[in-house]
Design a protein around this nucleic acid. Sequence first.
DNA 1: GTCTATAAATTGATAGAC
DNA 2: GTCTATCAATTTATAGAC
Lengths: 193, 193
Amino acid sequence: MPAAARPSYSATSLLDVAVQVFNERGYDGTSMGDLAAALGITKSSIYHHVAGKEALLGLALDRALSALFAVLDEPGAAEGRARDRLEHVVRRSVAVLDRELPFVTLLLRVRGNTPTEQAALARRREFDRRVADLVAEAIADGDLRDDLDPALVTRLLFGTVNSLVEWYRPGRGASADEVADALVEMTLGGLER
Amino acid sequence: MPAAARPSYSATSLLDVAVQVFNERGYDGTSMGDLAAALGITKSSIYHHVAGKEALLGLALDRALSALFAVLDEPGAAEGRARDRLEHVVRRSVAVLDRELPFVTLLLRVRGNTPTEQAALARRREFDRRVADLVAEAIADGDLRDDLDPALVTRLLFGTVNSLVEWYRPGRGASADEVADALVEMTLGGLER
DNA sequence: GTCTATAAATTGATAGAC
DNA sequence: GTCTATCAATTTATAGAC
């Protein structure tokens, strides 16, 4: 991996700029001309690095999904009471958001227009399913109130987590840990019996 | 799939179909050809009803914003303790989401690419500001825990509300009232001291 | 209120020189 | 690794007939 200097890009350093522009203007609202302008190179130069616009999107979505699924495989997500494993997944998901914000932001805005986007949506649903299992288990354990529907709780909980991409900016305002603390206090605090 | 044999629209009935397609494919991902196909008429016929694609967006965003601001002017949002007024705004915002789901969904996805979108974002920020005032007041009253930042709480709270557009569908699964109940239990429940 | 036909601009992508 | 030049397809929008 050559540390990018001035007017020379690799497939990955190019991706960072591209994803930023995708998030600013929306993926569909971004033309290859927009990307070229942001990169400071011409449209055709982009095709030297990647197959096209959709391949760029695929790389970005893959990076976000890999980071999120890695959380589910951490020890803290596999050991202990379900309620604590759930808190671990929530806190570590916020950490992923902090670390990979542009990529996760892009993932959460995908609509399913292309096969690339549909595949990403399918993986997102798998992630949600595994979290929902955790919520159901925590309720069965008696650690979360049982008068609320597990599927509904899961959606509200991760709806709150995902909504962070709308305003959270690393290094500005509250830190990722402070946000995670407040989020856990508000959500899990209200879900405990 | 829609509009088998009903080739006559008004500006508002056309808007319903257009907004649905905008939400399915994204605004930028929707061409006038896509709209024409969904409407069962030709592209040029659309221009008989509206000035263009962006005017269609403007009408839709206006409808969502009007409904949301109307909530702030209801008696329940102006009388009583701040904490109760806040709960009123949350519950009634969920009701607006239920009633005007496609329009609010579109509003929440706007990125600010055009003047029309920028104006909508400015009005959204004004709505958020008025909710933040309510949260700050409820904390000052001692009705919500004071160890959390009011601005942060506001963002988490309405982040949760806004995330409903990602999965809530009227008449499918939980009702709007059930969703509002669960949401208030989880969020305000966790925010009470 | 809808149509056909078409203009005018923009789009994603390729070829080949340096 | 970047460039100029160009293409074919698509896009928003208009003109004018029925």
